[in-house]
Design a binder for these strands. Structure first.
Lengths: 167, 167
DNA sequence: AGGATTTAGGCAGACGTCTGTCAATTAATT
DNA sequence: AATTAATTGACAGACGTCTGCCTAAATCCT
C-alpha cells in the first residue's frame, strides 16, 4: 500500500527540504563519518579521536582547552574524548605546575604510533570524499566550506581560536 | 591574554587538517545545528524532529522505514525520534492492517501546528546559513553538496530511496 | 506447504555533542 | 588584600547516531 510508491520525484514529499543547506550538511557529515569509520576500522579510531591525536602530535603538549579550541570541539566533548584516549593509553595527563587548574596532555608512544598509522588512512578518506568531484569542484567545495565555517567562528561555546589575528 | 599565544597561522599546528573536507564538514554540521537550535529554541524542537514532522506533513502517513529512507536517517535513530515525538503527542502510531510488522505514523493536530510554526523559523535558518555567501556562491554550495551526497547514496545502512527510480 | 530470506521495529551499548552546573584556581578590579 | 571575573575541568542529562542482536511478520523459493 504505502508502496506502490508512486513516481513522485521525492521532492514532492520533501518539499524542497532536501535542498536546504542544513539538511545536506547533515547528510554530508553522516557520509564523511561513515567513510572515516570504514577506512580506519582496522585501527578502531574515530575522527574525533584522530583530531586530538593529531594536534598533540604537532604541538607536543597542550591542555584540554587548547585542544578544544584548535579543533572546534566543545569543552565537555573534549574532556570525554581525552578521557577515552587516556583510558586507551594513548595520552598521559600530568598536572600543570604553572596552572594548577589545568592538565598537560601528551601523547604516549602508543598514541604516536596510532597517529602515524592512521595518517595515511585519513588521507584515503579525504581522497574518497572528493572522488565524485572534478579537481576544480573539489577545490571550490573546500573553499566554500572554509568560507562558511570562518563566517561562523563565533557561534560556539568555546571560540575556536582560528585566524592568527593577534599577529 | 589568551591570545598572546603565538602568531602561528594555526595551520602550523593543524598541519592542513583544517582543510580536510571531513573536518570542515564536521564544523559545518556543528554550526548548522547550532543555528537551528538558536532559531527554533522557542519551539523546543530539533532539526531531526522537524524532518520527521515535515515528511509526515507532506505525505499524510508513512511507516517508520519510509521516514528513515526519505530523510536518510538510520532505522534505530528514526525509531527513537519517532518515539520521542509520540511521547510529546505530535505523532500517533497505529498498527498497519496491511502489514502487521509496521506501524503507520500520522501527525496529530499538535504535530501539524508545530510543523507549521517551525517552517518559517527553518526558513530563517537557511537564510542565516548562506548569509556570508554571494547568491552565486550559495547556489554553488548547494549544488556541490547535492552532488556530494548523491554520490554516496549507497553508503548507509538504510539506502535512502532517493531518485524516483521505480516509476 | 515448508523452509530460508528479507523486512519492520525494538532494545542495548557505544560514542559524539551540547547545555548546565559545580568546584577549584587564577586573573582582574577595586 | 579582598572581592569579583574568568578559566579549567568534571559530571549529569539530553539528544542524535550507528552497530549489533533480537522478535515478528511477510516474501521468496524449491
Amino acid at each position: 500500500m504505502a508502496r506502490k510508491k508512486s513516481r513522485k520525484p521525492h521532492g514532492a514529499i520533501m518539499g524542497g527540504m532536501d535542498e536546504r543547506p542544513g539538511f545536506l550538511i547533515r547528510r554530508a557529515h553522516q557520509i564523511s563519518q561513515a567513510v572515516f569509520i570504514q577506512e580506519c576500522e582496522s585501527l578502531d579510531i574515530t575522527a574525533t579521536q584522530f583530531g586530538v591525536l593529531s594536534v598533540l602530535m604537532r604541538a607536543g603538549e597542550l591542555n584540554q582547552i587548547s585542544v578544544a579550541r584548535l579543533l572546534g570541539y566543545d569543552r565537555s566533548t573534549t574532556g570525554l574524548v581525552v578521557k577515552l584516549l587516556e583510558d586507551r593509553g594513548m595520552i598521559v595527563r600530568t598536572a600543570d605546575p604553572a596552572d594548577r587548574r589545568g592538565h598537560v596532555l601528551r601523547l604516549t608512544p602508543s598514541g604516536k604510533t596510532m597517529q602515524r598509522r592512521a595518517a595515511p588512512l585519513v588521507d584515503r578518506v579525504r581522497d574518497r570524499l572528493v572522488e565524485a568531484f572534478t579537481p576544480a569542484e573539489a577545490a571550490t567545495f573546500i573553499k566554500l566550506l572554509i568560507k562558511f565555517t570562518r563566517s561562523f567562528e563565533d557561534i560556539e561555546r568555546v571560540p575556536p581560536l582560528h585566524r592568527a589575528s593577534d599577529g
